[in-house]
Amino acid sequence: MTSLLPPAQKNWWAVPVGRQEIIWIAIALVWCLIMFFMMPLWHMYGNQNIPTEAYKVTPAKYQAKVNEMIEKYKVREETAMKIPVVAPPDGADVYLLARLWQWYPMLELKKDVTYRLHLNSIDWNHGFSLQPVNINIQVVPGYEMVLNITPNKAGEYTIVCNEYCGIMHHAMLGKIWVKE
């Protein structure tokens, strides 16, 4: 039962390591380094990277920005709750607000156009989970995150909330339409 006993040599650290282990450690280390460098490489050459741009913001201020945008660019309303749908101009700042239990407002975007999407929650943590593309971003109250997004396919998209946010978490949905 030797793994339960003190090492056979007092100077166990001086015992040479078998060739097999050395080879495996070398292979594993190379793989670890490849995995590590994939990440900065993707920052340089890949198209999906979480940006670091973020601002501290109060709920009232953020709400004001959202309202201002809705006033300017609202095109219609949806559902019995009359949720506004906003069609912002190309490249515009788009403010999306998460609150219990709604994504507000709805958006109408254009394919292959880049927008500055702002995300913030005015109450608890929420999870921006865009389906069916499956893009998932944490939304933390008090922090306004800015993502440059470029929809690459037209269609109707749903924002699911995938951070638990209380009893109606599962009912928290939003919509984004992408037009050709």
């Binding site: 990440m39 890949g46 979480i50 999870g127 998932n136 971003i137 995938n162």
Partner: peptide, 16 residues
């Protein structure tokens, strides 16, 4: 675990 802990890949896995 290693795959989902990759910085960018987390985008398609986080909280699912």
């Amino acid at each position: 675990g290693v795959v989902m802990g990759t910085e960018q890949i987390s985008i398609i896995i986080h909280n699912t």
